[in-house]
Amino acid sequence: MYPAKFDFHAPNSIEEVLSLLSEYGDDAKVLAGGHSLLPMMKMRFATPQHLIDLNRIDRLRGISQDGDTIVIGAMTTEKQIIASDVLAMHCPLLPEAAKQIADPQVRNRGTIGGDICHGDPANDQPAVTMAADATYVLQGPKGERSVHSSEFFLGSFYTAMEADEIMTSIRVPAAAGSSGSAYVKLKRKTGDWATAAAAVQLTLDGDRCSSVRIALTNVGATAIRVAAAEDALSGQVVDEALIDAAAQHAMDACDPTEDLRGDVEYKTKMAGEMTRRAIRQSLARARGQ
C-alpha cells in the first residue's frame, strides 16, 4: 500500500517549517511520528502534495522544567514520556497514560504533539493533558501563542491550530501538595483505542478535595472535560455517593457513536465506570495509599 505521490521536505529548524507551510498552505501536512498520518495517506484519506517531516528538529524534543511548569517538546515520543524522571515526579498522569497507548514500536515513534494535533477523539493525550491542566504552545508566521487544552479541540479532527502553525510544546503545571491522578482505560486489546477512558487529577487539602480535573476519551466528537463532575467533588470530602454523582455527570456528558467496541449505552456506562475507578485511584494516591 503506497501513499499518493508527494514532495518530501526534512527541514532542520522551526523557521524553515513555517516558511514551507506559508508557501504550500493547505497542500502541506507536517509529519510527526506518522502512526496516524501515514496509514491515512496509504488509504488515501489524506493526500498532501507536500510532506514536512519534523523529526530532524531537535528543539522540538525533550522534557524540561521552567519553574513550576514542566515543558514537553511536541516531538517528544511516548517512550520518552514513559522514561522521564521529571514527569514521574511532577506529573505521573502522563507516563501512566503513555504506557496505555498502542504498543512498544508505536510508542517509539508516536509523539505527544502528534497525538494531540491529530484531533482524533480516540487519541489519549487530549483528555490526559486536559486533566493535567496543560497549555499548548503554537507557533506560526505571526509568532507564538498559547491555547489551553480545554479550548483546543473544536470537533473531530478539528482543532484551534491554524494550517500555517505547528505545536512546539506542551506546558503542564507540576502537581503540588497532596495530589493524585489516574488514567483508567478500557480497551479490547493492546493497540486498540479506548472503548472509554477517564483521566483524573486532583489535590487534597486535608480530607477535602481542593481541586479536580476530569476528562474522557473516545465518547464524543472530542475529548470531553466534565466540569459538572469536577464541581460535584470540589471543596467536598469525597465519598462513594459523591463519586457516583460525578460518574453520573460523566455519563450525561457522553455522546458516543456505536461501533465494534460497543453500543451507545455500553460505552456510556463504561465511561461512568472508568470515571469512578479513576477518581477512587486518584484519591488513594493523593492520600499516599
Binding site: 501515514l38 517531516d53 517512550k79 515513534r109
Partner: peptide, 20 residues
C-alpha cells in the same frame, strides 16, 4: 518490525527517506 537506530519500529509506517 526492524531495529532502527537502536529502537524497534514498524517499517511499514516509516518512509525510506526518513531512514537517510
Amino acid at each position: 518490525t526492524v531495529d532502527f537506530n537502536g529502537e524497534s519500529v514498524k517499517s511499514c509506517t516509516l518512509l525510506a527517506v526518513q531512514a537517510d
